[in-house]
Design a protein around this nucleic acid. Structure first.
Length: 427
RNA sequence: GGAGACGUGGCCGAGCGGCUGAAGGCGGCGGUUUGCUAAACCGUUAUACGGGCUCAAACCUGUAUCGAGGGUUCGAAUCCCUCCGUCUCCGCCA
């Protein structure tokens, strides 16, 4: 959500920010109308309630004194019905207002490159060189099945399209990557590991911004008020929903492994081969909660922490600052990490690190008490992949493939695989 | 799944349907006293949304909030209903 004061006082600024995202400003006008209506109703309504409260106190006094209060009670009847009518109107306006507020996306940070789509994204850094192969490198969807470690057909059989079964060294490699990432972030980067629920309720999804707008992207458990997590960002960021943290406890830095479940509605036909776009994938997520003064430093730190995973794995990548038109709903600024995939001869997203500013904090009521003891202030929340595990496995397979179709295991992963140095045919 | 108990402020804990935003205690903050520390004493101590004043804040004021949502009532922390959560016992279960 955006601050109401900002919408009231600087609507043009918000319209301009929406335009930079490629959106119309109609919601701003709707907000202004509803907000004005709400305040007018509220003033009248609260005045009537004040009168009623006063009258009720008087009735109490009369009764206590043993007098007859019947006349006084009769006099309040009109007030009572007016209050009930007000309440209904006010509830209607507030419901619609909440809908508008929850539908407005975050404002892009001033440092974000302006542009209508990903073509305006800015490459901030390129790390490592794409490997040169003395043979034609294969894609992971050929390498994996040939080695017997990825089975797309059987994944589809037991669940459906966009589900995959891992076998043998493939399953072990995925697990090794999860452990390697968690170990790096907890032991070297100072994160606190969290193992959250893999399902969440509606309040949590509203808190981080997936609801009410993006219901169609989620898997909902029929008959239960639960959704499968689309990312650990949801349960982890909501851990401190409706809380006030002490400033001395900041910044909070959590890392969490979870599977992620996404319906991928609207992406039919895109990335249909291989592991790139699955309904279920594993991810190690990073979440920071910080003061407004430090959140952009935190974003740089988080992005470095995610990049460090790729560096230690020896995978070439680049850092991209998303343009205003490519930014996610809740993000004020986002860096994508894109890993080089030889099978596609392209950089593909493997991490997305965002500072959401106070946008999620306002929805989820994430606050902190300043060290000087002043009023609670909204936190800034950040989240980033550190990293998407399935896509990391793709990158390892494709970048470390040998001419015979086997896979060399990156040095840093070998301790997690019992010293395994290479994945050859035969699982 | 069956039976029962309970959800009050940062914490503990009172609260006959009316003057209870809520006693008391602890903790926190400010102060007095005091070689220092401690103790004692005095005061203070929620949040949200509006209105007034203001450049803004402070401040003044209203409404709401005693798990959540409905209901009864002139009036609900107190009565009724539903839901959520916690605890105990039985059953089942990894």
């Amino acid at each position: 959500m955006l601050p109401r004061d900002l919408l009231r006082n600087e609507p043009d600024l918000v319209r301009a920010a929406l335009a930079a995202r490629g959106q119309e400003g109609a919601l701003v006008d709707r907000f202004l109308a509803l907000d004005g209506e709400r305040r007018a109703l509220l003033v009248a309504h609260e005045e009537r309630k004040r009168e009623r409260n006063e009258a009720s106190r008087e009735i109490g006094r009369l009764k206590a004194a043993g007098s007859d209060a019947a006349a006084a009670i009769a006099a309040v009847a009109a007030l009572k019905s007016a209050i009930e009518a007000d309440e209904a109107r006010l509830a209607g306006v507030e419901e619609e207002l909440a809908g508008v507020e929850l539908a407005l996306p975050n404002l892009p940070h001033e440092s974000v490159p302006r542009g209508r789509d990903e073509s305006a994204n800015r490459v901030e850094a390129v790390v490592g060189d794409p490997p040169r192969f003395p043979f034609r490198p294969q894609a992971h969807w050929d390498l994996g099945p040939a080695l017997g470690i990825l089975d797309f057909e059987r994944g589809a059989k037991v669940a459906g399209a966009r589900f995959t079964a891992y076998f043998g060294a493939g399953a072990r490699l995925e697990r090794a990557l999860v452990n390697f990432m968690l170990e790096l972030h907890t032991s070297e980067h100072g994160y606190t590991e969290v193992l959250p629920p893999f399902v969440v309720n509606r309040d949590s999804l509203v808190g981080t911004g997936q609801l009410p707008k993006f219901e169609q992207d989620l898997f909902h458990l029929e008959g239960y008020p639960y959704y499968l997590v689309p990312t650990a960002e949801v349960p982890v960021t909501n851990l401190h929903r409706d809380e006030i943290l002490e400033e001395s406890a900041l910044p909070v830095r959590y890392c969490a492994y979870t599977p992620c479940f996404r319906s991928e509605a609207g992406s039919h036909g895109r990335d249909v081969r291989g592991l790139i776009r699955q309904h279920q994938f594993n991810k190690v997520e990073l979440v920071h909660l910080a003061t407004p003064e430090t959140s952009y430093d935190e974003l740089e730190a988080m992005t470095r922490h995610a990049g460090r995973v790729l560096e230690l794995l020896g995978l070439p990548y680049r850092v991209v600052s998303l343009s205003t038109g490519d930014l996610g709903f809740a993000a004020a600024k986002t860096y994508d990490l894109e890993v080089w995939l030889p099978g596609q001869e392209a950089y593909r997203e493997i991490s997305s690190c965002s500072n959401c500013g106070d946008f999620q904090a306002r929805r989820a009521s994430l606050r902190y008490r300043p060290a000087d003891g002043g009023k609670p202030r909204l936190l800034h929340s950040l989240n980033g992949s550190g990293l998407a595990v399935g896509r990391t496995l793709i990158a390892v397979l494709e970048n470390y493939q040998q001419e015979d179709g086997s896979i060399a295991i990156p040095e840093v992963l070998r301790p997690y695989l019992g010293g395994l140095e290479r994945i050859g045919p035969g699982r």
